[in-house]
Design a protein around this nucleic acid. Structure first.
Lengths: 250, 250
DNA sequence: TGTAATTAATTGTATTATAATATTAATATT
DNA sequence: AATATTAATATTATAATACAATTAATTACA
C-alpha cells in the first residue's frame, strides 16, 4: 500500500481538480485496493500524494460520502463504507397518478409521521418548537384563494411536517419524509387545476396543526400520536376526495 | 432577493455544520422557492446568511451536486438543476456500523411496522394468517446454538415481519420493510461472531411474535399496535445491547 | 455600430490556523 | 495489578484569507 499513487498521472485534465480527485479516490475504492472498512490516508497525506490542496481532497471526499462510498468521523478518519453503488427505497414516479397507489403512499406516511410526532414530543428542543410554531402560523396565515396561495399553503404545510421530523433528531425520519413529500408534492401540483383547497378544509387543517404543536410542546407523546393520526387521516381523506371527484366549491 | 433566510434559525440541530447547511439548501430547492434553473446566491452571501464559513457552504453545495440537485460553473455561479433527488430514500451502509445511526434505523422501523401491524389486523386474509402463523412456528422451532441456527433464526424472524407487511396489502410498507431489513441484516451478520442470541431472548421474542399474530388474527388493530410496539422496543434493546457488549466499533 | 480592453463578480484552489473529537500513551491511584 | 485520570497525539471539522481562473457586464475607442 506504500505508494498507491506513485504511477498515478498527476490528475488528467479537462475537469476541475475536485472532479479528478473524486475519480481518483473512487477508482481506488471500486478497484478494491482500498477494501471496505479500511481507513483512508489522512487528508494531509492525500493532498500531498495527489498534489492538490486539502480543500480539494475534502471536496472529493464529501462527494463520495454523498454517494455512500466513504464515511468520515471527526477525530478518527475516513473509511471505505461500500464498494458498490447503493440502491434505496424508491417510488415509481408514474404511481403518483394512480389513486390506489397514492392512497398507499399516504398510508405509509401515516405510520412514519405519527411515530415522528410522538418522538418529537419527547425530544423537541427550543429551536424545534420555534420552527414548528412558525410553520403553524405560516400555514394559518395563508388565505387559499388563487393558485399561488394554494402553493404557499402546500409549502407551509410541508414545512410544518418537516419541522416535526427534524425535531425527532432522527435523520431517517427526516430523510424518508423528504422523499415521500417530494413524491406527494408532484401529485398535488398536478391536480391543482382543480380546486385542491377549500376555505373550510384549510381552517380545519390549521386547527389540527395547532393541536399537534401544542401536544409536542407539552411533551405529551401520547396526545401527539393521537392528534397527528387524526390530522393525517382527515388530511388524506380531503386530498383523495378532491383529487377523486374534482369537487370545487366555495 | 427577499431574504430567504431572515427568519431561519441559525442552523439548530446536532450534526455537523455541513450536514445542516446541506439540509438548509436542499430544503430551499425541494420546497420550490428556488425554482429549477435559478442561480443561487453566491457562496459569500450564503455563508453570511447561514453564518458559517465558505468552506461549509462549498461542502454542502458539492454534496448536492453529487445528488444532482445543483450544478456550478466557475465564474458563473451555482444553479438549481433539479428539484427532485436522483436517488430515492437510501441508507448509507456505513451507518449500520454506527450504534447511534443503527438505533435511528431501528426507530424508523418502529414507526413503519407498528402501523403495518395495525393495518394488517384490519385487512389480513386467510392466506396472510397462514403465512404469519407459519413464520411464528418456524421462529419458535429454531434452537439458537450454532451460527447456522442463528442465521435460520434471523431468517424466520424477518419472515414473520415480512408476512405482516404483506398482509397490509400496501406495496410501500412491504417495499420499505424489505429495504430496511436488508440493511439491518448486514449488521446482524457482521456482529454474529459474538453471541447475538441467547436462549432466553429467543424464547421471549417467540412469545411476543405469538401475541402479535393472535391480535392480527382477532382483527384487533389496537392490540396489534400495542403488542408490536412492545415487541420491537424489546427487540431493539436486545439487539443494541448485544452489539454494545460484543462488538463496539470499527 | 462594432470591437477590444477593462472591470466586477463568482467559483476554484491554496494556505494557514484553530476547534472538536477520538485514539493512544503515560501517569497516577487504589 | 488493575483501574481510572491525565496528557499527548492524530485526524477531521471549521474558519479566514488570499489568489487564480473564468465568465459576464461595462466601458473605451475606432
Amino acid at each position: 500500500m506504500s505508494d498507491l499513487f506513485e504511477n498515478a498521472v498527476p490528475l488528467a485534465r479537462g475537469q476541475t481538480l475536485s472532479d479528478q480527485a473524486t475519480e481518483a479516490l473512487r477508482r481506488h475504492v471500486v478497484n478494491g485496493d482500498w477494501p471496505v472498512g479500511i481507513m483512508l490516508p489522512s487528508e494531509a497525506v492525500l493532498s500531498q500524494k495527489l498534489d492538490v490542496s486539502r480543500s480539494v481532497i475534502r471536496e472529493a471526499v464529501s462527494r463520495l460520502k454523498a454517494e455512500g462510498l466513504l464515511a468520515s468521523h471527526q477525530g478518527r478518519g475516513a473509511f471505505v463504507s461500500s464498494d458498490r453503488p447503493r440502491m434505496g427505497f424508491a417510488i415509481d414516479e408514474r404511481d403518483v397518478d394512480n389513486r390506489r397507489k397514492l392512497a398507499q403512499i399516504l398510508e405509509l406516511r401515516l405510520g412514519v409521521e405519527i411515530e415522528a410526532a410522538a418522538i418529537a414530543a419527547l425530544r423537541r428542543g427550543h429551536a424545534d418548537l420555534e420552527q414548528i410554531h412558525s410553520a403553524v402560523s405560516a400555514f394559518a396565515a395563508v388565505q387559499k384563494f388563487g393558485p399561488e396561495q394554494v402553493r404557499a399553503g402546500v409549502d407551509a404545510d410541508l414545512q410544518f411536517h418537516r419541522a416535526i421530523c427534524v425535531a425527532t433528531r432522527n435523520d431517517y425520519y427526516l430523510g424518508l419524509f423528504n422523499y415521500l413529500s417530494a413524491s406527494l408534492r408532484e401529485t398535488i401540483e398536478a391536480g391543482r387545476n382543480r380546486s385542491v383547497e377549500r376555505g373550510g378544509d384549510s381552517r380545519e387543517a390549521a386547527e389540527e396543526h395547532r393541536a399537534v404543536a401544542e401536544a409536542i410542546e407539552a411533551q405529551d407523546s401520547l396526545a401527539a400520536r393521537k392528534l397527528m393520526r387524526r390530522h393525517l387521516e382527515l388530511s388524506s381523506a380531503r386530498l383523495l376526495g378532491h383529487l377523486w371527484n374534482g369537487e370545487g366549491r366555495e
